[in-house]
Each structure stands twice: as C-alpha cells, then as structure tokens.
Design a protein around this nucleic acid. Structure first.
Lengths: 191, 191
DNA sequence: GCCATAAGCTAACGGTTGTTAGCAAAAGAA
DNA sequence: TTCTTTTGCTAACAACCGTTAGCTTATGGC
C-alpha cells in the first residue's frame, strides 16, 4: 500500500485477520496488541472495548452490502438479470473484503446487546430484499413456482460461502465465480 | 426419552447444545458442568479434556455422513438420481443430528492437532466423493459442462446450511427441503 | 513557545480459564 | 464380604482474561 496506515486502521485490519483465523472468543487483546506492535492497554486509545471492535467490523460490512445491493438493483429490469446483478454485487463485496466478510458471517453472534439485536434486524432486512426479487420473479412468471423462503435461503448459503473459494488453490476470478453460480441457480445443473 | 441416559451421554449432549449456542471457545467447563448437574472436575471422569469432547462430537458426525453417503450412493444408477440420493442422505444426517451438525460445521476449527489435520483430510475426502458424482455426470452428458469444483462447492454450501432452516419459524419437512433443494440445483430457478 | 490532545507506556485489578491432586462414596465383581 | 472401578466431591494452581488508573511522551494548532 502506498497510503500510510493509522494505528487505528492497523488495529482493525489485524483484528479482522485474527478474528477470522481463530475466532473472536479465542483471540485475546494482548495477542491482538502484540500483532499490531503496541501494548494491550493502548488498544483502548482507539476502541472502547473488544466488542466495540467487532461492532465496527460487522456494521461496516453490513453497510457495504446494502450500498452495493441498492446500486445493483436499479441497473436491471427483468427478474433473472436483476437477480444476477445483485448476486454479482454481493459476491463483489465479499471479494473486496475477504477477511472482514468471514468475521461478518461467522463471528457476529458474539456481538453484545443492543448491537446484536440491531445486527439481526439488518441481516433480516437484507435477506428480505433478496427474497423480494425472487417473489416478484415468481409472480411475473420469470421463475418457477417454488418455496421462495427455501430458495432464497439456498442462494444465500451458496453466496455467503464464496469466500472459501477465494482461499482455495485454484485461482478463480470474481467474474467467473459470479457467472457460474448465478448460472447454476438460474438454469440448474441438468443438461 | 424412555431410555435412561448415562452421565457421559448427558455431558456430550449438553456440550453440543452449548457449543452450538455460544461457540466452543466461549463455553467454560464450569458452565457445562453446571448444566449437566455436576461439578466441573467431574467432567474429567468422562472426557480427558475439553478438546476431547469436541473431537468426539466432530468425528462422530463425520462418520454419520460417510455411512449415510455410502448407503445412498449404491441405491441409484443415473447421475441426477444418484446426486439426489446423496443430497437426501446428507440432509437426513443433518436433520437427525441438528445440534451436533452445527458444531461439526462451525466449531471444528477449534480442534487441536493432530485431530485438526485428520478432520480436514476427512472433510476433503467427503467433498471429493460428492464432486466425483458431478464429474461423472458431466462426462456422461447428464450434467452441463461447468466448473465442477465451483459447483460442488455451491451445492455443499446450500446443503450445509439447511440446519438453519429447521430452526426457522416455518415448519418444513425433511422431505420437502431435500426435494426442493435438489430440484433447484438440478433444474434451476428459471421457468 | 504553549497548551491541548492523542497515543503510548507500566502496573495492577478482579475474575475466569482448563485442569490436577487428593479424597470419599457408590456400584459391581469375586 | 472384600476388593476394584467408577463417579462424584472440594480445594487449588498457574495462566490468562478484558479493562482501568495513572503517568509519560509525542503531535498539532495557535
């Protein structure tokens, strides 16, 4: 990076890395501090608490997802293309925030109240935005008549695990992943 | 339950419940013991360590998946039906071991060596069994020519998240879930 | 130069962690 | 019965937890 990094940024980035690698509960403040290159109490000059750190990571990610979705949803009209657009947007957010994404997906449960409740609400709203596209597509006849909750859920599962793909040996481009997964979901595996 | 439960069984079951609810690292031995109704040191009459408990939960589940797969894979011949059969088997294992499944999927990373390595190897082997069915299906022309690694991965993601469905409000039967998900994956969403 | 703020440090707090030692009671086998 | 094994208990250890207090040093604005 050409841009120099503030200590606060370094703390956040290091926390993302460690929380992802070993889980929020298993990472201590002293360990985090050591990785950053400062002493543990100095962390509190930048974040109020360990939970505060997790909160920032998770809610920043939530915002990225919402912004990307809203931007994508307006670009297309027909249901299949619209769905493909938001799938691409979703995958793109994951790809550009790989470590934070994993924290977002796997460690949010360690958020304390009231942030935990707020987070769940946001997540539900986001899922409903996806589901709405599917429901409208079914109503318009663009999609088969299926249990939309179940389908939306399956799509989500596939998308939210894409971060694992980026970590695998084979180098797959973001385009390739988005293209193949939306193809699979729209047209199916059968020839 | 009509069958009386040994203390060891109760420890395991309670551990599954707590590990799932709050994560392996966040659950203490004293808390686990309290839930079981004994003192913390008494746990060590049944399990050598906290890791030992996690190990048993994870490796038992691994075995269930392997057994169910091998049983299912022989029942069908044609690729799409074979894939559907193993999908059903996989979902069935999850459905009958709901809490242990979540621990299996989300907490395995806390296994210590050498069990962690062994676990990863088992998981990879299992994924390859799935992928093999897909590859053969592609070769025989039953499936579209697609990036099989990516596809196998997407299928897995959808399957492995089904435990969330059972926890949702709407009551969905195992049959319904297996049927709809394999339909989606085989035929796609598009009408 | 002066002052305020930011950002680091050491020492230490009360509490919790997984685990062991050592002992007692219960259960089962002979 | 007597012996062994199992299963429980209390007490405790060393290590670690997130966090605070209080102090020093560097930084940036005026």
């Amino acid at each position: 990076m050409a841009t120099t990094q503030t200590t606060k940024e370094k703390v956040k980035q290091t926390a993302q890395k460690l929380f992802r690698e070993r889980g929020y509960a298993a990472v201590g403040m002293r360990e985090l501090a050591k990785e950053v290159g400062i002493q543990a109490p100095s962390l509190y000059n930048h974040y109020k608490s360990k939970d505060d750190l997790l909160r920032e990571i998770c809610f920043d990610m939530a915002q990225y997802f919402f912004v990307a979705f809203d931007k994508a949803v307006t670009t297309e009209e027909k249901s299949p293309r619209k769905l493909k657009a938001v799938i691409k947007a979703h995958i793109s957010v994951i790809a550009t925030n790989l470590e934070a994404s994993e924290v977002f997906f796997n460690e949010w449960m360690f958020l304390e109240q009231p942030h935990l409740g707020k987070f769940k609400k946001l997540r539900f709203e986001y899922e409903m935005k996806f589901r709405e596209i599917i429901d409208k597509g079914i109503k318009k006849g663009d999609f088969k008549k299926m249990n939309s909750k179940l389908i939306a859920f399956a799509i989500f599962s596939a998308l939210n695990a894409t971060y694992e793909l980026y970590r695998s040996n084979e180098k797959l481009s973001q385009e390739e992943i988005a293209e193949d997964i939306s193809d699979l979901l729209l047209k199916g595996l059968k020839s």
